[in-house]
Each structure stands twice: as C-alpha cells, then as structure tokens.
C-alpha cells in the first residue's frame, strides 16, 4: 500500500458517500444517471467475487463490502425509493454499446482464461467507461448540480491517483498490470473535459453549465 493508492481509495469512497448522501438528503436523484450507477454496481460485483475466496487484508475486505453495499443502496434509491425523481428521459445512453464490446474484449484480452480472472478483466474494462452515461446525461441537460460535480471530481481523481500508484509500484515493487493501467488511463482521459470545466467554473463558484 502507498499514499497514492490510499488517497485514491479514500477519494473513491468519498465520491460514493457524497452521491449516496446527496440522494438521501435531498430525497432526489435529479441529474444522476441511474445507468451509470447500475454499471458501477456490476463493476463491484464482478470484481469482488473473490471476497469469499481470498482474504488480502481487513482494509481490502471492508472497503469491498462498503463499495458493494453503497453501490446497491444507490441503485435502490434511484430506481425504487426516489424513482419519481429519476430523470429517465435524459438518462438515455445505450449501455449495451458499452457492456457487449467490453464483455467481448474481456474474453479476448486477459491475464488468465479463468472464470474469476475474466470477470475481473470485464470489471476493469467496464469501470473505465461506466461514467459515460452520466457525462452524456450532463451534456444533454446542459448542467449539473454542484454536489454532483464534486462527486464526479472525486470519482475522476481516484483513478488518476491510481495511475500515480502504478508508477510508484512499477519503480518500487516491480509491479506492473498493463490491463489495469491502460483501462485506468482511458478512464481518466474521459474525465479531462469535466476536470477542465470543474476547475474553471465550479472552483470559481459558478454553476457547471455547458453551452447547450
């Protein structure tokens, strides 16, 4: 474990908690893409199946349980409890265009052709594009609530910090996982235009609104 991975995990945890609290406190999931949240629930489920089979550390296991729990709680709040506030018309990204190619790629390019490893690879590839429905929804509505932009910033920052963690592990632990690195770079690149808007608008106290 290194400081970059730890702050990355904490940034990821913060994002998940921010979103959950935003929906719970405002009793509304306006502006939130339920499709992205379903994809994240799938990402955690397929990646953490080893919860039952391999124990790495208390930290590792507890974080996995928290991530999975919060992901399903968020999906529940969006599609069940506060479904009246779910903006289905703007959450119209065709996720099958993500899941199918990612599934195919996971079967073709992986470290080991075993069930758990293909699911882990699927999860890594899916996570890199899971935010697209959310970014697409913001481009369609032309704006995002400030709390949602903080959620997205923490979520984008987490994988950017993981990239630094991989650089660190390459030099100090000779650890190198090309699949995770390539997917992580793609994932972080997808946030670049959001990061630009976040820094130039939200951090200056303006509302994030796209030229519609």
């Amino acid at each position: 474990m290194n400081i970059f991975r730890l702050t990355g995990d904490l940034s990821h945890l913060a994002a998940i908690i921010i979103l959950l609290l935003k929906i719970w406190k405002t009793r509304s999931c306006a502006g939130i893409s339920g499709k992205s949240q379903i994809l994240f629930a799938i990402v955690f489920t397929t990646r953490y199946l080893d919860l039952l089979s391999s124990f790495i550390s208390l930290y590792n296991t507890s974080m996995k349980v928290i991530y999975i729990g919060c992901a399903y709680a968020t999906v529940y709040l969006i599609y069940m409890k506060f479904r009246a506030t779910y903006d289905g018309n703007h959450d119209s990204f065709r996720v099958e265009f993500l899941v199918v190619p990612v599934g195919g790629l996971a079967v073709l390019i992986n470290h080991d052709f075993s069930f758990l490893e293909i699911l882990w690879t699927f999860s890594i590839y899916l996570e890199s594009v899971a935010i697209l429905p959310q970014l697409f929804m913001i481009s369609k509505t032309g704006e995002a609530e400030t709390i949602t932009t903080h959620y997205l910033f923490c979520l984008g920052l987490y994988r950017a910090l993981y990239i630094v963690n991989w650089i660190w592990r390459y030099y100090f632990e000779a650890f190198f996982d090309l699949i995770a690195i390539v997917a992580g770079v793609v994932q972080t690149i997808l946030y670049c235009d959001f990061f630009y808007l976040y820094v130039t608008k939200v951090l200056k106290g303006k509302k994030l609104s796209l030229p519609a």
Partner: peptide, 10 residues
C-alpha cells in the same frame, strides 16, 4: 502482474 492470490488492489 497477476499473482496466484488474485489482485490486491480495489
């Protein structure tokens, strides 16, 4: 790289 104990990152 992939080790027999699976992946140690979240």
């Amino acid at each position: 790289e992939y080790n027999i104990f699976g992946h140690d990152e979240l």
